[in-house]
Amino acid sequence: MPRISEKGKLMPASPIRKLVPYAEEAKKRGTHVIHLNIGQPDIKTPAVALDAVRNHAIEVLAYSMTEGSETYRKKISDYYAKNQIQVEAQDIIVTTGGSEALSFAMGTIMDSEDEIIIPEPFYANYNGFATASGVKVVPIVSSIENNFGLPPISDFEKLISPKTKAILICNPGNPTGYLYSKAEIQQLAGLAKKHNLFLIADEVYREFAYDGREHYSILQEPGLEEYAIMVDSVSKRYSMCGARIGCLVSKNKEVIQTALKFAQARLSPPTFAQIASEAALETPQSYFDAVITEYVERRNILVSELQKIEGVKVAVPQGAFYCVAELPISNSDDFAQWLLEKFEMDGATVMVAPAAGFYATPRLGKNQIRIAYVLEKEELVKAVRILGAALQAYNE
C-alpha cells in the first residue's frame, strides 16, 4: 500500500474544527449547540460589497492579475493611508485569504528547517503553515497572568539561533485578544534589526481595538521597511470570511518579487471576491463604530459572566473578538467533547475550542479554552451559564 508523507502525518488537526462531528451528532439528537468555538462573525456583511457582485456586468469570468487587480490594490493603499500606513500598490499582493499570505511569507523568507519565533498561544493554523513549509516553530510563552502581553525581549534573544529567520505576531491577537502597544512593537522592531530578522505581523483584526486604544502597525514603524511583512484579510473587518481575500504587504522589494513567484504558481486570486472586497472599502466609518460598540458590549458581558464562575480565570481582551479562559479542569479537550456528547441544559449545550491546540509547547493550555464572542449578547449569557453548570457537573 502506498504511504503518505511524513509531512502529512505531522500536519496538525484544527482544534477549532475537530469537534465538529460531535456537534453534528448533538444537533441530530435535537440539542441546540451554541458555537463559541469559531470566529465567524454574525455581523452582516456590508451591503455595498454584496451589491457589487449582484450588479456585475462580467460576461467572461477570466483570470485576474496574479498580484490582484491594480484598481483594488490602489484602493487598498488608500485605505492604509487613512490608517497612517504609507504603502503603494506595488507593495501589495492580493492573496486567497490571509492564510495564503502567511504561506507565501514563509515560503519567501524561509528554507526547510529554518526557525520562526511566535509568542504562544497563537492562531492554531500557524502550526499548519509552518509544517507545510518545513519550518520549525519556536514558541515563546505569554501568560494569562499578565493578559498575554509581550514576553520580555531577553526571553526572545535566548531563543534566537543561526536558523532563526523571523518573528511572527498576531496583533490584535487570536486567540488572546491582546493588543500590542506601540512601545512593544518598537521593542520587537529593535530586536529584528539587531539580529537581522524579518518581523511578520498578522493584522487582520486591526479595526477591533477597544477602550480608547489604537492599533499600531509594524509598517508605521520608521526604519523597519526591509524587515516588516504584514498579513491582512477582509474576513473579519467586513464580516466576509467566505470571500477568501487577503493580502501580503511589504516595502521590501525582494520579498514582494519573490512572493509574486509563489502567487504565479497558483495563478490568481478569485475575481468575484475581489469585486466584493474592493467595494467593501467604501464601507462608511459608521459601520465600524457600530460594530466596535457591539463587540465591546459583548466582551464586557462575557468577561463579567465568566468571572462569576468559581475557579475560572479570564484574560480581558483589548481587541479582536476572542478571549482565553482558564477552567478548573485538567483536560479541556476531554471537557469540550463531553459537553457535546454528554451534557445539555434546557435542551442546549456549548461548543468551545480547547486551547492546547493554540500552543506549540506540549502540555500547555490543557486547562484553557478559547471563546469567540461573535454571538448576540443574550446568547452569550445563556452560553456562559450553561458552561458554569457543565463545569460543576463535570467535576462532580
Rank of each mutant, 00 (worst) to 15 (best):
149 G>R: 15
287 Y>W: 13
303 V>W: 12
197 L>G: 03
316 V>M: 14
158 K>H: 05
343 F>V: 10
223 G>K: 05
27 K>R: 15
40 Q>V: 02
202 D>H: 14
23 A>D: 00
41 P>G: 02
328 P>S: 13
147 N>W: 09
22 Y>A: 11
57 A>M: 06
70 E>S: 00
229 I>K: 12
347 G>K: 06
358 F>N: 13
9 K>I: 00
15 P>H: 01
349 T>L: 11
175 P>D: 06
304 S>D: 15
107 G>P: 04
304 S>H: 14
23 A>C: 03
357 G>L: 09
63 Y>R: 05
149 G>D: 02
272 F>I: 08
311 G>V: 13
393 A>V: 14
233 S>N: 00
65 M>C: 03
176 T>C: 06
30 G>M: 05
40 Q>L: 02
194 K>N: 04
160 I>P: 05
31 T>A: 06
143 S>V: 07
202 D>P: 08
257 Q>Y: 05
219 L>N: 15
190 G>H: 01
221 E>I: 12
168 L>M: 14
311 G>M: 13
271 T>S: 06
332 S>C: 09
263 A>F: 08
161 S>H: 09
349 T>D: 04
140 I>N: 09
16 I>H: 00
251 K>H: 08
237 R>F: 05
163 K>V: 00
126 Y>I: 04
34 I>V: 01
161 S>A: 05
240 M>F: 02
88 E>F: 08
96 T>I: 15
80 Y>N: 10
101 A>D: 09
371 I>L: 14
124 A>W: 13
364 L>C: 11
187 Q>N: 11
104 F>Y: 12
312 V>S: 14
289 D>L: 11
233 S>T: 04
324 V>Y: 06
57 A>T: 14
357 G>W: 13
264 Q>R: 14
85 I>N: 12
104 F>M: 14
128 G>Q: 03
312 V>A: 13
77 S>K: 09
188 L>C: 03
112 S>D: 12
